[in-house]
Amino acid sequence: MGSGVLDADGWPLHRGGIATVPGLGFVGMEFQRSFSSKILRGVGRDAGHVLSRLRRQAA
């Protein structure tokens, strides 16, 4: 039985960095939300998005 965080190949299960498991997020993945998601130029924007969504989940 899996944890629901990773698929059968070991890749995170997410949508735009928000995991399928509540309260968990990912950043720095290729094409997470844009072409620049895996580099410093884009990871900051993605981190802001993920944090905002996780805060809404927790509220």
Rank of each mutant, 00 (worst) to 15 (best):
D7C: 09
S52C: 07
A19V: 02
V27Y: 03
A59Q: 12
Q32M: 12
A47K: 06
R56W: 05
A47Y: 03
A19T: 03
P22S: 13
P12M: 01
G23R: 12
S37P: 05
W11M: 12
E30C: 06
D46L: 06
Q32E: 15
R45F: 02
V43F: 01
L40H: 04
A59C: 08
G23D: 09
P22F: 06
G44V: 12
K38C: 11
R41P: 01
S34I: 00
M29K: 04
A47R: 00
H14C: 03
A58R: 14
L54F: 08
Q57W: 08
G4V: 02
A47S: 14
R56V: 07
L6I: 15
A58Y: 09
L13S: 00
L13A: 04
G17P: 01
G48H: 08
T20H: 09
D9Y: 01
M29E: 12
F35M: 06
L13N: 05
G48S: 07
G2E: 14
S37M: 06
D9N: 08
F35A: 12
S3N: 14
R15Q: 15
Q57Y: 09
L24M: 11
G44I: 04
S34Q: 08
D7Y: 00
D7T: 02
R56L: 08
G25W: 00
R56T: 10
P12L: 00
H49P: 04
L51K: 06
K38T: 04
S34F: 07
V21K: 12
L54K: 09
G48M: 04
A58E: 10
P22G: 10
S34L: 03
G25C: 03
G10A: 00
G28W: 06
G44T: 10
A58T: 11
V43Q: 05
R53C: 13
F26R: 05
